[in-house]
């Protein structure tokens, strides 16, 4: 930058306007370049974050947790089915007990009738 400006004859640029213009353009170029580098760094950091979040956090942890939760919900459904079966078996056992009580009562009446017939027999 300074080499270029030194080449300008001082008689043509008494107030240094050309040098000022060149320096201003260079400053703008440097600002633009710096901002571009910030953009590139931001983009690369975002890409890195995207990769880390996608591969390590989401695929490694969150998806695994989601799969475990789904398996847990399946186990809950299965357990609930077993509870339903238990209640049905309990209902069946209740009816079976009632039927069995009926049979016992019939047997008792049968036994009582047999005893009465033996008593009536001469």
């Amino acid at each position: 930058m300074s080499d270029d400006t030194k080449l300008i004859p001082s008689s043509d640029d008494p107030l240094g306007i050309n040098k000022l213009a060149v320096d201003y353009d260079y400053l703008m170029y440097k600002i633009d370049d710096y901002v571009q580098s910030i953009q590139l760094q931001t983009h690369s950091i975002c890409m890195q974050h995207d990769k880390v979040i996608k591969e390590e956090i989401i695929e490694g942890i969150i998806d695994k947790n989601i799969a475990e939760f789904k398996a847990l919900l399946e186990s809950c459904n299965e357990l609930e089915n077993y509870f339903d079966m238990l209640e049905q078996i309990s209902f069946i056992s209740d009816t079976f007990r009632q039927r069995l009580d009926g049979i016992c009562n019939e047997l008792k009446t049968l036994k009582r009738g047999k005893v009465q017939r033996q008593d009536l027999r001469p």
């Binding site: 600002i31 633009d32 983009h43 975002c46 979040i53 998806d63 947790n65």
Partner: peptide, 30 residues
């Protein structure tokens, strides 16, 4: 303004938005 605003963060913003959307979706699912 041209020197400072010449940068295009739209791709980065789109990437960030996509990451944010993915995280939000997974967070809501969890």
């Amino acid at each position: 303004s041209h020197a400072i605003e010449n940068v295009d963060f739209s791709e980065t913003l789109a990437l960030q938005t996509r990451i944010s959307g993915t995280i939000n979706f997974k967070s809501l699912e969890l």
